[in-house]
Design a binder for these strands. Structure first.
Lengths: 198, 198
DNA sequence: TTGCAGGTAAACAGGTCGGTGTACCTATGA
DNA sequence: TCATAGGTACACCGACCTGTTTACCTGCAA
């Protein structure tokens, strides 16, 4: 298999191949041989960069880690925009569930590095919600953040078994009800008061 | 391994063994040899009852299928009781996620029988919610049923990566807010007004 | 030119997978 | 008494798994 070696390093290509195959077909369903072949790299080289499949799995999950940072956009928009992103993901056709939850499910072992990475990611998003909720001066931002996190997780799992993108809209509508009930109907101090909704 | 053959049929023991091992360790992580050994049955016999592992998987999921029927108890209690059951499951220690979602994740293939069974089960619970919501004369029972389903799914997934039973209470609180917002604050026409909560 | 780092291809080791083939055992009922 | 259904024990098959070894190739710098 011919691969343009100048475009990216071997390590990067291996990681890209692992991401594609692990997510699409499942971690346990894909062997290291397949990953090496997809990356256009010999198995020896793969094991040079990642000493074991478990290391590769951990690297795959870590690479998927996107550091969330609340932006300057209106908090409510940011929160609800999350669900719009979900809807786009569901409609994409290549959606196969949350990679972190999938890894935990597939590996089973709670002591596997993947379990810790998954927990870290989920907690990061929960905190991201909480910061935005504090900005909205919502009641009990911590509890509400957990509930929004549950809605996201539920939309992901539901869309996995029933591939309906509209599930994201259902979750979004529920989130709006929860936000309203927590007294976050409108931003208290919006960055730009004239900005219209969405 | 000595097994009391009079207690249950071979088929039942095989199914019980599959249930225990598949759920605890994962479908892909458990071989048919292990299931046969756990059931105290030869592999030949196992293949006599279940011609392939896929058949056994389908039987395992079907056997987990509990037919939900709305009872005469107050509808709101029934709905919220669902989340209390979740909390007990999470606290049990042997919780390993939703078996249907796990099967879909582990098998990957959307054409596998497991995918259909999972979908059937989820839809059944959604309808169960809807019937109860209609009884409560809630606004848009269909949409709200989907949202409650998402909450359940989200609690299951969240508890899988972060084993905190309190997540069920968070989901329950969110469900209460959604119910209230849909005008289902109290049962409008309870079946037997004097009947106490079961 | 030489030396060598870093890559390749391919075979191999030791094990597990789903599934089959074979030969033996045993309880039951005609 | 004997046939048979249904079970057991166990070796076996080919495929695939993670991970290692071997031997060779190639670009580049001293």
């Amino acid at each position: 298999m011919k691969v343009d070696r100048s475009v990216s390093s071997s390590a990067e290509r291996i990681l890209a191949a692992a991401d594609k195959l692990f997510y699409r077909q499942g971690i346990r369903a894909v062997g290291v041989d397949a990953v090496a072949a997809e990356a256009g790299v010999s198995k020896r080289t793969l094991y040079n960069y990642y000493p074991s499949k478990d290391d590769l799995i951990a690297a795959y999950l870590t690479a998927r880690f996107r550091h969330l940072e609340p932006s300057d956009a209106p908090a409510r928009e940011q929160i609800l925009g999350n669900f719009d992103r979900l809807e786009r993901m569901f409609a994409d056709g290549s959606f196969r569930g949350c990679p972190y939850v999938n890894a935990v499910t597939e590996l089973g072992d709670p002591k596997h590095a993947a379990a810790g990475i998954a927990l870290q990611f989920k907690e990061q998003r929960r905190v991201w919600f909480r910061v935005l909720l504090e900005r909205l001066q919502a009641r009990d931002p911590d509890a509400l953040a957990t509930q929004l996190q549950i809605l996201v997780e539920g939309a992901l799992a539901s869309a996995l078994v029933r591939g309906d993108p509209a599930l994201a809209r259902s979750a979004r509508a529920a989130a709006e009800v929860l936000l309203d009930a927590a007294g976050a109907r409108r931003p208290v101090r919006s960055v730009r008061p004239t900005r219209r909704a969405r």
